[in-house]
Nucleic acid binder design. Structure first.
Lengths: 106, 106
DNA sequence: TATACATTTGGCTATATTGCCAAATATAAA
DNA sequence: TTTATATTTGGCAATATAGCCAAATGTATA
């Protein structure tokens, strides 16, 4: 792995890492259905307001979501919908894993 | 987020997390070109043998790669090539981020 | 059998992440 | 202007991750 490659893969990994948390992943998928304000997530997520805000901040830093302040609220939206295509693949991995588990159990 | 959803998103996040490291991401892409033994990665990666082995173990646990012991060597291969499709999207995020940075700098 | 080679495992330290609380900030309403 | 609401920020403790070393395991070769 060359020095240039290293930098590139660190950048890619940063983006994956931003998505690699159950709450952030769920939020990203929710945003595919349209923008949401922080409070809407807090209502559903049984997490501290500050925790939700920080998760969204991680997604924002990574460039995955955009924020838009309107009045007292901040609305977040998905900047890169292609993110979601990947989820099919992740689900495929999970299914393969289950199938293999079942095979081993036989 | 319901209890069932929570479990599902934890599973998805585990898979993303396995990929969310520059070395593991790079190795996964390398494996798209065909199987490699641990020592081949060690030669290129300036990391301890045990570190490389553990990274591959993380990918294996996640179901992303398969291992095959032949003689003294263990060969790893990519179980789920669709993983790589996602990289285009990640690169798109990176490009958007650069473009936005450039716009802000103006 | 003894030895060398390829890999994994256990253990340790350093660092990063998560989530809560309290405090700060910003904006609208009274 | 005071107050309430929405959000962010700073800081802390608990937990997870990364990478090294040393030791254990498994397999081929001498």
């Amino acid at each position: 792995m060359t020095g240039k490659e290293k930098v590139q893969y660190e950048a890619k990994a940063r983006i994956l890492k931003a998505l690699a948390h159950p709450v952030r992943l769920w939020m990203a998928e929710q945003l595919a259905g349209g923008e949401r304000c922080v409070c809407e997530f807090v209502d559903v997520l049984d997490l501290d307001f500050s925790t939700v805000s920080k998760h969204l901040s991680v997604l924002k830093q990574a460039g995955i979501v955009a924020d838009d302040k309107r009045g007292k609220q901040v609305f977040y939206s998905l900047r890169v919908p292609c993110i979601l295509n990947f989820m099919h693949c992740v689900e495929e991995v999970i299914q393969n894993n289950s199938a293999r588990q079942a095979e081993l159990a036989k």
